[in-house]
Design a protein around this nucleic acid. Structure first.
Length: 909
RNA sequence: AGGACGGUAGCUCAGCGGGAGAGCACUAUCUUGACAGGGUAGGGGUCAUGGGUUCGAACCCCAUCCGUCCUACCA
């Protein structure tokens, strides 16, 4: 039916070469194909941007600075779709701010990712039958550096494919010279302040990676285990005490049994001695409040070297600590007959022996949480060893106070502030030493003869301050997060506080990251920044969710459900991926990845492409200087300028408040509905008409609107917007540096909106009627319009060309009260009544039935509004504006209803 | 055990105090010169359940049920 709906141009004009095309060389084709091909545009423009140095910060010394540092991806491997989300959001912010005139810095970098990377490289070596110990520290590290270089390159390529506007001249790595210096400085300062200490503690030990882990590197999983009930005999032969344990092999290290001091069952036994089965060691019965009388037998075996709670109790009661395992989880000489067995083998063996000796009473099924290493997956062993710790309390307190005094960071969405506070308020000391090679080696030295400890920035300094010559550096390295902690300021030159970048770009404006690393990273950056720079590291933290698979499952290697961003880009283009991923969810909320969504985004890109093709076909001879939108314009022209202006204002506001989902919707609606479906169709009238002046005006508006529209979508879809913008009449080298469309009060035009709304109503209504009686749009019909008042009439007659064209009317009559024939179909819009004499096509009874249905609908509306208005409470309490709106609706609906009723009467009459 | 988030059209999700929305899917229609990766017109929802607050609740409060995820765990 809509065969006359789209007015079309005669032929494709030849497009002129643009300067950019010449600069980008290899694209010699001038015509724009009917579908957008992302590939050529993407490589072409990315190198154009980087060669032009457009991403480099510092070029606008008088402007306000705006800075973001990238959350450094691990050099462990390739970037996944979650990175794409994180980076796209940052790129959107940076590109927007850059266009708004800020001196923007987006600093790239990568993280050495201690355990993760070392594990990968060790794995690779193991396949060749080599262990890291075969190579030795130095040779091994050479291998890791090679690995790092390889993956850093891959990451660079991926960044480029995604179109990220990073300032590569300032790229950093967590193990580079500057960061290492900052790490040492921080370590020494904290040590000298007494905030770093070395101590023997129960830590989380990863027996596979043979290193300590921090609390948050442990993942608890529910495991179907057993509860073993054991009977320990009293030394005096007067009986037994029953204890329960989930880990019978640890009994070898038991140094006491504890009961609650007020437990009547055991009161008399406190202070007596038990004989530990198998080992035969004498151990005391002690009393401690920690014991829960209700659980199990009410008596607990105490293994200070293999359980954190037992460790603390052991300290309270001066119990010996007997470590029965070595660092690989193998039983040691303290385990007596079990020496040399793996802990899991030992469990089985000891269970059998205990059973045989009558010690084991029974085994119950028991579901409990067991800690696993986040990296290696091994069951974590609570293990007694000497490690380095950061004393958290003073640092945490300062961070809490800052947050509560209003000097905190602004979390988006704000609920994450509570997550953060909750953690930092309950934080425990942070174990920072790792028994690895890949990382920042701890700046501590020991005298080989006396064991004396010296902490210093380097060995020379250590010698100088201690006067010792036989120094040997600590073998361990620091937790990866110890360095990523300093990322927001160490990347900018700190500890040199006079560094230009530090002064200019610190604190950062926003940190964009996933909610899953609030504890690992966000919280630690905050307290570190406060401690060392005296300022918060960034003003805002934007937390996004996780990208999940189409079923809502977490993406993981083991499930094989991960999505490679490069594959998405290959299939649908970087812009489609960026648009889908950035507008597809709200802050803090997870996002399900579905290919259909990417396809939809690709279709949107294609729609933009084709709208631009249309424009370019009709902008021949228009130059940037000739664009003039200040003259007398048509309704549609004024309307689209109003809508563009309104949209610009909204987009700016929404980006500033990080509402990317809503931004996407507004852009989509504006471009697809307003610009393509309505404005372009309206514009065809003057573009194809004979009125040269009118055509020139519309060309101006079209060029102007498209230019600004490209700028608005540029942060989201950088490639296609640049490609199109370069073809359009434009000024400047790149859209990357084009000015952001600012709201302009002069373009406000409520009158054009009202006029356009009426015209759209009329056109839709006529289309409806024609669809109703199957009159194809190719067949011309007569249209009579009864306008409600002079103003409406004038709008209609002023725009009769549009109505005539879109409704395909052969004769068109409009008046306040024109003569109407009998056999008509009709529709009512606000302010006017439409009449289509379609004699021969209409069944009068059917038409009456249709109109009666319309009356029913209107009745419902009127009833609802009247009920509301007759409610005393509503009239008394609702805001005046709401009441006014309801009154207007009431008037509108009843007027419409009356007209429809009158029509029915006429048809009957 | 505590906490957070989610339950809206067949699907994926937005809206978060004033007439239930989008995209996809579906139906009908158009071999239209920007675009079939398109146009036009449609069908489809007691907004998880039960209370409460309010003139007015998908939206605020309480309770319940169902999902997802964190945090802490008793041997």
């Amino acid at each position: 039916m809509a065969d006359q709906n789209n007015l079309t141009a005669a032929e494709l004009p030849n497009l002129q070469d643009t300067a950019a095309d010449a600069a980008a060389a290899n694209d010699s084709k001038n015509e724009m194909p009917t579908t957008y091909d992302p590939k050529s545009a993407e490589t072409k423009w990315y190198s154009y941007w980087t060669e032009g140095g457009y991403f480099r910060a510092g070029g606008r010394p008088d402007a306000k600075a705006y800075s973001i540092v990238i959350p450094p991806p691990n050099v462990t491997g390739m970037l996944h779709i979650g990175h794409a989300l994180d980076f796209t959001l940052q790129d959107i912010l940076i590109r927007t701010k850059r266009m708004q005139g800020f001196d923007t810095l987006w600093l790239p970098g990568t993280d050495h990712a201690g355990i993760a990377t070392q594990t990968k490289v060790e794995q690779k070596l193991r396949e060749q039958g080599i262990s890291r110990h075969d190579l030795g520290r130095e040779k091994f590290l050479e291998q890791v550096w090679e690995w790092k270089d390889k993956y850093a390159n891959t990451i660079h390529e991926q960044w480029a494919k995604m179109g990220l506007s990073l300032d590569y001249s300032r790229e950093r790595f967590t193990l580079d010279e500057g960061l290492s210096k900052a790490v040492r400085e921080v370590f020494v300062k904290l040590y000298n302040k007494g905030l770093i200490y070395r101590g023997k503690r129960i830590i989380n030990w990863d027996p596979a990676a043979r290193t300590a882990l921090s609390d948050i590197e442990v993942e608890y999983k529910e495991v179907n285990g057993h509860l073993y009930h054991l009977r320990y005999p009293l030394k005096d032969g007067s009986g037994f005490i029953t204890v329960a344990t989930t880990r019978p092999e640890t009994m070898l290290g038991d140094t006491a049994v504890a009961v609650h001091p007020e437990d009547d069952r055991y009161k008399d036994l406190i202070g007596k001695t038990l004989i530990l089965p198998i080992i035969g060691r004498e151990i005391p019965i002690i009393a401690d409040d920690y014991v829960d009388k209700e659980f199990g037998s009410g008596a607990v075996k105490i293994t200070p070297a293999h359980d954190p709670n037992d460790f603390e109790m052991g300290q309270r009661h001066n119990l010996p600590q007997i470590n029965v395992m070595d660092e690989s989880g193998t039983m040691n000489e303290e385990a007596g007959p079990y020496q040399g067995q793996d802990r899991s083998v030992c469990r089985k063996a000891i269970t059998a022996d205990l059973k045989e000796q009558g010690v084991l009473i029974n085994i119950e099924d028991h579901v409990h949480q067991v800690g696993h290493s986040e990296r290696s997956g091994a069951v974590v062993e609570p293990y007694l060893s000497t490690q380095w710790f950061v004393k958290m309390q003073p640092l945490a307190e300062a961070a809490i106070n800052a947050q509560k005094d209003g000097n905190g960071v602004n979390f988006v969405p704000d609920r994450f502030e509570r997550t953060y506070l909750n953690w930092i308020e309950n934080v425990r000391d942070w174990c920072i030493s790792r028994q690895l090679w890949w990382g920042h080696r701890i700046p501590a030295w020991y005298s080989e003869s006396t064991g004396e400890l010296v902490v210093a920035n380097d060995e020379e300094e250590a010698r100088r301050i201690s006067g010792l010559t036989d120094l040997k550096q600590d073998e361990d390295v620091l937790d990866t997060w110890f360095s990523s902690n300093l990322w927001p300021f160490a990347t900018l030159g700190w500890p040199d506080e006079n560094s230009a970048d530090f002064k200019r770009y610190y604190p950062n404006d926003v940190l964009v990251t996933g909610y899953d690393i609030i504890y690992f990273w966000v919280a630690r950056m905050i307290f570190s920044a406060l401690e060392f720079t005296g300022e918060k590291p960034f003003s805002d933290v934007l937390m996004h969710g996780l990208v999940r698979d189409s079923e809502g499952q977490k993406m993981s290697k083991s499930l094989g459900n991960g999505v490679d961003p490069l594959e998405v880009i290959e299939k649908y283009g970087a812009d489609a991926m960026r648009y889908m991923i950035s507008t597809g969810s709200t802050a803090g909320q997870d996002l399900r990845f579905r290919w259909e969504k990417v396809e939809q985004a690709r279709n949107f890109a294609n729609k933009i492409w084709n709208a631009s093709r249309f424009a370019l076909m009709n902008l021949e001879g228009v130059s940037f200087e000739n664009i003039d939108i200040s003259c007398e314009l048509s309704t549609a022209d004024r309307w689209i300028l109003h809508r563009l202006n309104e949209t610009s204002r909204e987009i700016t506001r929404l980006i500033d408040s990080y509402e990317f989902g809503e931004t996407g919707r507004q852009l989509y609606n504006f471009i697809w509905d307003d610009l393509c479906d309505w404005y372009i169709e309206f514009a065809k009238l003057s573009l194809y008409g004979s009125d040269a002046a009118a055509k020139a005006k519309t060309q101006s508006v079209l060029a102007y609107v498209l230019d600004r529209t490209m700028r608005l979508i540029h942060p989201f879809m950088p490639f296609i917007s640049e490609e199109i913008w370069q073809h359009l009449p434009h000024e400047g080298e790149t859209i990357t540096l084009a000015a952001w469309p600012e709201y302009d009060a002069a373009l406000e035009n409520p009158q054009a909106v009202a006029e356009m709304n009426l015209l759209m109503d009329v056109i839709r209504a006529v289309r409806n009627i024609r669809a109703e009686v199957n009159v194809p749009m190719s067949k011309k019909v007569e249209l009579i319009i009864k306008a409600g008042n002079e103003e409406t009439l004038s709008i209609i007659t002023r725009n009769d060309n549009y109505i005539g064209r879109f409704c395909n009317t052969s004769s068109f009559e409009a008046g306040l009260n024109p003569e109407t024939p009998d056999k008509v179909m009709s529709a009512v819009v606000t302010g006017a009544e439409l009449l289509l004499p379609l004699s021969g096509l209409i069944d009068i009874e059917q038409e009456i039935a249709r109109l009666e249905k319309e009356v029913m609908t209107l009745n419902g509306e009127v009833e609802r509004v009247e009920k509301k208005l007759s409610n005393q409470g509503f009239v008394a309490k609702a805001p005046a504006k709401v009441i006014e709106e309801e009154r207007a609706k009431q008037a509108d609906y009843s007027a419409k209803r009356e007209k429809v009723l009158a029509r029915i009467a006429e048809l009957r009459g």
